[in-house]
Design a protein around this nucleic acid. Structure first.
Lengths: 346, 346
DNA sequence: CTGAAAGCGCTTACAG
DNA sequence: CTGAAAGCGCTTACAG
C-alpha cells in the first residue's frame, strides 16, 4: 500500500482519464515513441503538465527492468581523487537522466572492506562503475550472473572496459623532470599498499620508478623505496624517518599528491628547504597542490569520470555491447611549481 | 519485460513453489513477520538460500511504497567536509539496509546550482539529507507535497530537524585562543560566499568573530574582514593581497581549514614566518590539518553525518514523526598545533 | 495511430 | 498459521 504520508500524486491513469486516452497511449506519448498522432501527443503532454505528472520510477523499473541508476563503488570517499571522480560521474549520468547509488567500501578499520553482494545490486542498479578497486572473483562472478555491465576506472576489472591513466608514463614524466634538473639521488614514497583497495596503482608506479632509473643507469637504494599508506599523515612519518636516517636523497617522487604533502611537511619539520635541500614531485594535481607549490603530474580526473560514465551509458541507453577490450588512457601532464629545482651543489 | 541480458534470477514464485507454500507466506517468512510457523519459516529460508533468492527491490518498492534509499544533496563533493559527511551517512544508512542516492549540485560554473524537482525525488527516495544547503522555497514546498521527510546538516531547512555545530561558539573558541596568546590585531578570511551554496555558515562565523572581539573592546578594521570563496586558491589570493597592503594583523581567523591552508601559503610566499610573524587558526580539522601544523577548531563530521542519518532512519524505520524543532548541536574543540603563538614583541 | 490485457514481482488486507 | 486475490503503476506485445 502506498504511504499515506505522501499526498496523492497523479498517476498515469489520471492522465489517461483526463486526456481521454488509454494509459498505453499516455505512456507512448510521454516517452516520445512514434505511432502517436501529434494532436494526441500534445494533449497528453499538456494534461500531464497540468497534473504535475511524473512517472513513478519504481513502477517503470518493474515494468521495464531498468532502474536508471548506476552503482558507483569507491574504496574511499574522503580522498580527493575519489570524491572528484564521483562528482564527475554524477554529473555526466545526470545529464542523461541517470542517477548514482553510492557505495563507500571504506571500512572503519581501513583494513577490510565491504564485499558487494546480490543484495546491493540486484534490480537496484543497471550497471556499475568501480573506482580503482580490485574486485574479488566472487564479485566478478556476481556481475556476470546478474548480467550487470561495469566499467572500471584505474584498476582493471576482468571482463569490463577500463578508463585510466598510464601509471608508468606518469611516473616516468616525474622522474624525467627530476633527471633533467640534475638529480641522481632518488627516493620513492608510497610503495606498498596497506590494504586491498590499492593493488595495481602503487605497484605500477613503483615499478616504473625503478625501471626508468635503472634504464638511466641509476641505482636506487632499497631503503629509499618507502612503503607508506597513501595518506599525508602516514607519508609524513615515513618521510621523516627517512630524512633523519643519515644520507639523504636530493629528490623524492611521491606516489600521490597527498603523499607529497606529507613529505613536504616532514622536510619542513626538519628545517630542510624545498626545493633547495630537497625536490619533491607528486602525482594528481590535487586541489591543494597549487597552493602548496607542489610540482606534480596532473591527471584529469574529470575526464576519467566522464569517460567511464559515457562508456556505460552507451550500453545502457544505446544498447551497444560493452567491449571488455577497451582500455582508454587519459593523458597526464607535468605541472611545474616550486617544489622542484636542481640539486644544490655540495 | 525483464532484460534478457540478465540471467534468470529466482523470484518469490520460485521459492514458493519449491517450498510448497504461497508467495504470501514466503514474503512473511523472509521478512520475519510473525504468524508463520517456525518449521515453515525454516523451510522457506532454506529454499530461498538454495535458490540465491533476493527480493527485487523494485517490486518491493512498488508494493510497499518504500524504496530504502535516501537522497543526499551536496553543494560540493570535492571539498573535504562534504565528502566526509557523505561517507559517514552512507555507512550509517547501510548498516540499516538503506542506500544513498547522491545529488551533487555543484554547477560547472560554480555560480548556480541544480534545483531539485519532483523528477529527482518522487518515488525514488524515502527521505532526504541536505548538506549545508539553503533550500529554495520551491524545494521546500516540494518536500511537503511529496511528504518527504528531510533532515538538514548545517544550514537549517524550514520544517526539518537540523544537525550542526554551533558556528558562533566555534569561532569564539578560535578567537579566545588567539586572545589568550596576546593577539589584538585580527583579520578574518572567508566573510562572503561567492555563490548560493553557503549562506548561513559564513555569516554566522563572521558575525561571531566580530561580536566576540567587540565584546573584548577590540575593533577590527573593515579591510581586515576579507571576503573569499571557501577554497584554498581564493584564500591564497585574498590573503596575499591583505599581507602586502601595509599594516598587518598578527593573527588570522580563517572560516575553514581550506581557507587557512591558502592563508598559510600566502604568508610563506611573502617570507613571513608562521607562527612567528603571523598566527593562523582554521575551523574543521581537515585531514591535512595535522600535517600542515594548523591550529584549528575541530568539528566531528562523522558524528554529524551519523546523527542526521539516525534521525532520518528513526522515521523511516520506526515510523516516529520527525520533530522539526530538533536542533542537535555537535560540540567542537580546539586543537592546538604549530600555526599559533604569542605575537612577536616589536 | 490506439486500446485491452498481460505481466513485471512483490505486499497486504481479508478470509478462513 | 496460511492462501487467494487485489493492488502498486507502469511497459509492451498483440490486435485492430
Amino acid at each position: 500500500m502506498s504511504e499515506d504520508r505522501h499526498s496523492r500524486m497523479s498517476t498515469i491513469t489520471d492522465v489517461a482519464r483526463e486526456a481521454g486516452v488509454s494509459v498505453a497511449t499516455v505512456s507512448r506519448a510521454l516517452r516520445g515513441l512514434d505511432r502517436v498522432s501529434p494532436q494526441t501527443r500534445d494533449r497528453v503532454v499538456q494534461v500531464a503538465r497540468d497534473l504535475d505528472y511524473v512517472a513513478s520510477p519504481t513502477a517503470t523499473s518493474l515494468a521495464s527492468g531498468r532502474t536508471q541508476v548506476v552503482g558507483v563503488v569507491a574504496p574511499f570517499l574522503t580522498r580527493w581523487f575519489f570524491a572528484a571522480l564521483v562528482s564527475a560521474i554524477e554529473k555526466t549520468l545526470r545529464r542523461h537522466a541517470h542517477h548514482v547509488l553510492l557505495f563507500d567500501l571504506e571500512d572503519d578499520s581501513y583494513t577490510s572492506r565491504l564485499i558487494l553482494t546480490q543484495n546491493h545490486l540486484w534490480r537496484r542498479v543497471d550497471g556499475l562503475i568501480t573506482l580503482n578497486l580490485p574486485m574479488t572473483t566472487g564479485e566478478i562472478d556476481l556481475l556476470e550472473r546478474l548480467g550487470l555491465p561495469a566499467v572500471a576506472i584505474g584498476t582493471p576489472v576482468p571482463g569490463s572496459p577500463t578508463v585510466r591513466i598510464d601509471d608508468a608514463v606518469t611516473v616516468v614524466t616525474a622522474v624525467d623532470h627530476l633527471l633533467g634538473l640534475g638529480h641522481r639521488d632518488f627516493a620513492y614514497i608510497g610503495a606498498v599498499p596497506d590494504n586491498a583497495a590499492h593493488i595495481l596503482t602503487p605497484q605500477a608506479r613503483r615499478g616504473a620508478f625503478h625501471d626508468t632509473l635503472a634504464a638511466h643507469g641509476i641505482r636506487v637504494r632499497d631503503e629509499w623505496i618507502i612503503a607508506s599508506d597513501w595518506t599525508a599523515d602516514a607519508a609524513y612519518a615515513e618521510t621523516r624517518a627517512l630524512l633523519e636516517s643519515g644520507a639523504r636523497p636530493t629528490a623524492i617522487v611521491a606516489a600521490s599528491d597527498e603523499i607529497a604533502f606529507g613529505a613536504m611537511a616532514a622536510a619542513r619539520a626538519l628545517g630542510l628547504d624545498i626545493p633547495g635541500d630537497l625536490s619533491i614531485v607528486g602525482v594528481d594535481d590535487h586541489t591543494l597542490a597549487s597552493v602548496m607549490g607542489l610540482t606534480t603530474v596532473r591527471q584529469d580526473v574529470q575526464a576519467q569520470g566522464a569517460a567511464a560514465a559515457e562508456l556505460l551509458l552507451d550500453t545502457l541507453i544505446a544498447g551497444h555491447r560493452l567491449d571488455p577490450g577497451v582500455d582508454r588512457i587519459i593523458p597526464t601532464e607535468l605541472v611545474v611549481r616550486s617544489s622542484t629545482a636542481p640539486p644544490r651543489l655540495l
